[in-house]
């Protein structure tokens, strides 16, 4: 606590060189993270970059004397909210990489122009404001930052606090209502499942994914002996979403490239026509 108070005392006077250094280094990283959030093609990467930016912001909160918020930022935002994002990304499909090609004519240029103008104007507004004097939080944090906040939240802002509570509950209920789905068909009984198992088309177990393949990921269909993908080997959910990755062609071309490299290494520059045709048949 005493260390905090000391830090607060320095805060009131201005900023130390250490803080300046920290600002320039971490600020650069934060901006880079934000830019990556926007420009990464995969949602997972965006989420991770955003999490990094948020952690840096948490450090800045701490540097600004908002100790409670700094911790909350890490715990709630980075810990909970960003994880929620990652869950949803997983639900929606990690593989779906956005193409960054713009479909609306002129949208990107307009957006960049507006963003540039907006940023310049906002900076101009900040620069225009007379913000020379910083009071510092030494006085306000004298009894501890958390205590100070608590005193405010439970006295001056108590109604707002209660209302945000109500808002949270409403949001939770709303999310449940939105995502909840009524079961449209009766659940199968154990008897029906066993009958289906025994009398259905597939007496043996369903083929596993990745069979005869160079992948063992769940979304890659196993290959049948003739090299075509066996869709049955992919789990039903992915099949319905159409998220099966067909790697047969990819695998074949990979194989070709590998063999080519091997031949190069072995300096077998002139491959006979007969061999080549054999290889082509084998690859089929």
């Amino acid at each position: 606590m005493s260390a905090q108070l000391a830090a607060a005392a320095t805060l009131s006077a201005g900023t130390s060189t250490g803080e300046a250094f920290q600002f320039w280094v971490l600020g650069t990283v934060a901006v880079a993270g934000a830019l990556c959030t926007v420009f990464m093609r995969r949602a997972v990467h965006s989420a991770l970059c955003l999490a990094g930016t948020m952690i840096i912001l948490a450090v800045f909160y701490l540097a600004n004397g908002a100790y409670f918020l700094g911790v909350v930022q890490i715990v709630v935002y980075t810990g909970a909210i960003m994880m929620l994002f990652l869950f949803v990304v997983m639900l929606v499909g990690v593989t779906a990489a956005d193409s960054l090609k713009e479909t609306i004519k002129g949208q990107r240029w307009l957006a960049l122009l507006c963003g540039l103008g907006f940023g310049i104007l906002l900076a101009a507004g900040v620069g225009n404001a007379s913000l020379k004097e910083f009071t510092g939080l030494g006085q306000a944090n004298a009894n501890g930052n958390v205590e100070g906040l608590a005193a405010l939240i439970f006295t001056k802002y108590v109604f707002a606090f209660e209302i945000t509570g109500a808002l949270l509950i409403t949001a939770a209920v709303g999310a449940m209502v939105l995502t909840h789905r009524e079961r449209t068909e009766r659940a199968k009984t154990q008897r029906e499942m066993s009958e289906e198992r025994v009398r259905g088309k597939h007496l043996p177990p369903l083929p596993a994914p990745g069979v005869y393949a160079r992948h063992n990921a769940v979304d890659v269909a196993g290959l049948l002996p003739d090299g075509t993908p066996a869709e049955l080997s992919v789990m039903q959910t992915l099949r319905q979403r159409g998220q099966i990755r067909d790697v047969s062609a990819e695998a074949i071309s990979d194989l070709k490239a590998l063999e080519q490299r091997a031949e190069d290494r072995l300096e077998r520059t002139n491959s006979g026509p007969g061999k080549g045709s054999n290889r082509g048949e084998a690859s089929k």
Binding site: V38, T53, Q107, G119, V126
Partner: peptide
Amino acid sequence: YLAALLFTIGATGVLI
């Protein structure tokens, strides 16, 4: 200034 910059980047991202 950093906040303004981050806000602008976020807003542009929303648009793009």
